[in-house]
């Protein structure tokens, strides 16, 4: 046993934790009111086999991606404008700041009213959440561009257009990408919140499970399946891990000059 501590300790601790948790639940006869590892595993097999889980994840992801794209399409140009034109930035900064301080989910009643329950309200919340990281990071990106690089390009004979294309844009990409990563995380967090809020509000007993959030609500109030809830929770974590890895991998590919 010469494994390093960083591997050995968790290798002993976590299985022991799961095992004692399982035993404790059964010994206490609390399997009806407490989640337990084997129950979660069974729920996973059940929900993966009948497609419930995959469908719900796909439903949520679809809206996340659409909302994310809308946020990028609106946020990046606004960020460019604010980053390049100082008076515009100074005027809009406090407004952006105060709108950003409104938790996206707070808009849900109005979003429901304006866009309806069939997914578009959730889309609005997602886009709202993802919008601000794009704006803020694009502003940062433009402001951080090294003046010397612009000068260097001009001294080498670059036209303004070439400066924009070959210096400003690649110079801004890494910071905007970081914004995209944050935006993606926000988007995923808020789709769940939005779907849950919609699920509770609109269809407490219904079966319209179009996303993970709604699935959780119906599992909570209709099926009352705690192990299922834990499974969905873990799935949310896994998906957000996968998203973050995906975005990072893309980022590395797209900006190979970054160390």
């Amino acid at each position: 046993m010469t494994l390093p501590l960083r591997i050995k300790a968790p290798l002993i601790f976590f299985p022991a934790l799961l095992l004692s948790w399982e035993c404790a639940v059964w010994l206490a006869g609390a399997a009806k009111i407490m989640p337990y590892p084997s129950g979660v595993a069974l729920a996973a097999i059940r929900d993966i086999a009948d497609g419930t889980l995959i469908d719900a994840i796909a439903g949520s992801l679809r809206r996340v991606i659409t909302g994310f794209a809308v946020a990028a399409l609106l946020g990046v140009p606004l960020g460019l404008l604010m980053g390049l034109v100082e008076p515009v930035r100074r005027a809009l900064d406090p407004i952006v700041d105060s709108l950003r301080a409104i938790a996206p989910i707070a808009w849900i009643p109005l979003a429901l009213l304006w866009l309806g329950i069939r997914g578009n309200a959730a889309l609005f919340i997602v886009a709202y959440a993802a919008f601000f990281p794009f704006v803020l990071n694009t502003i940062q990106a433009v402001r951080l561009i090294d003046r010397k690089l612009v000068d260097a390009a001009r001294a080498l004979g670059a036209s303004p257009l070439l400066v924009l294309r070959a210096v400003v844009v690649p110079g801004a990409v890494p910071t905007v990408m970081t914004g995209a990563r944050i935006a993606m995380a926000f988007a995923w967090g808020s789709i769940i919140a939005a779907e849950m809020a919609i699920g509770i509000k609109v269809n407490p007993g219904g079966a319209a499970t179009v996303g993970l959030g709604q699935l959780m609500v119906s599992t909570l109030y209709v099926k009352r399946d705690i192990n299922g809830l834990v499974l969905y929770m873990l799935s949310i974590g896994l998906v957000s891990l996968a998203i973050d890895h995906g975005v990072r991998a893309f980022q590395r590919k797209a900006t190979p000059w970054q160390r």
Binding site: K148, D151, V173, W257
Partner: peptide
């Protein structure tokens, strides 16, 4: 330039 101003992405 003093610190060269090489384009980091090239």
């Amino acid at each position: 330039f003093q610190d060269y101003a090489l384009f980091p992405w090239r």
